[in-house]
Structures are given as structure tokens and as C-alpha cells.
């Protein structure tokens, strides 16, 4: 995935079944953000892989004061990339070759 300066990782082991999964997000490179970033630490949250949209969660982070509005896209993309990877891994596990 593209290096957005915002890192998103699983915050629990993925059992491949739960739709809602714990994620952890933190800023690795504040210079990649357009707005001034307050170093708040890592943000832990749960994300519903089926029903939720990464950009909506990014917007909620902006409204909660973690990021400025100008960075909503970069945060949303970072979450989207991680979610895509989780889904890809699940699909690969669910449909073994053979």
C-alpha cells in the first residue's frame, strides 16, 4: 500500500469470522499530512468490515479533533488500504487452491 504517513494495523488477531474488528491507527510521518498534527498517540477503534465505510470513520476522527478536515482523505485512504488487505487475506483463506 502507498505510504500515506498514517499507519493502520490490526489491534487484535483476525479470526476471519468477525465482521467488526479492532484497529489501531497512528501517524508515522506528520510531514505527509497537510494540516498541523497534534501528537495524540495511537487511536484504537473498531471497524465493521461489511457495513462501514473507511472515509466515514476518518470523518468521525476529524470531528473528534484528531485530525484536520484537510487530512480526511489521507486518513480514509489509510484505513481503506488496511481494510482491503484484511478482506483480501480473508478471501484467500476462505477459498483455498485446489
Amino acid at each position: 500500500a502507498e505510504d500515506t504517513g498514517v499507519r493502520v494495523e490490526l489491534n487484535e488477531e483476525d479470526d476471519g469470522k468477525k465482521t467488526s474488528i479492532a484497529l489501531k491507527l497512528w501517524v508515522e510521518d506528520p510531514k505527509k499530512l497537510k494540516g498541523k498534527y497534534k501528537d495524540t498517540g495511537a487511536i484504537e477503534f473498531t471497524f465493521d468490515l461489511v457495513h462501514e465505510v473507511p472515509e466515514v470513520v476518518a470523518q468521525e476522527m476529524v470531528e473528534s479533533g484528531f485530525f484536520l478536515d484537510c487530512d480526511v482523505k489521507i486518513v480514509g485512504k489509510s484505513i481503506r488500504d488496511r481494510v482491503a488487505l484484511i478482506k483480501w487475506r480473508r478471501e484467500r483463506t476462505a477459498s483455498p487452491n485446489g
Binding site: 489501531k24 497512528w26 495511537a42 484504537e44 477503534f45 473528534s64
Partner: peptide, 27 residues
């Protein structure tokens, strides 16, 4: 531990915790 909790008006819970040093990008 220094954690804080922020609840968004939509009901989502964000928990702020320290970034593990080992996971910070190495320069």
C-alpha cells in the same frame, strides 16, 4: 496507563493510547 477515551456523537468509541516505540518508523 495513559489512555483516554473519546466517544464520537455517532457513538463510535476512540481510545487513545501511546504508540509502541518499536512500531514507530525507523529513520
Amino acid at each position: 496507563s495513559p489512555t483516554a477515551q473519546v466517544v464520537h456523537s455517532a457513538g463510535r468509541r476512540f481510545i487513545v493510547s501511546p504508540v509502541p516505540e518499536a512500531r514507530l518508523k525507523e529513520q
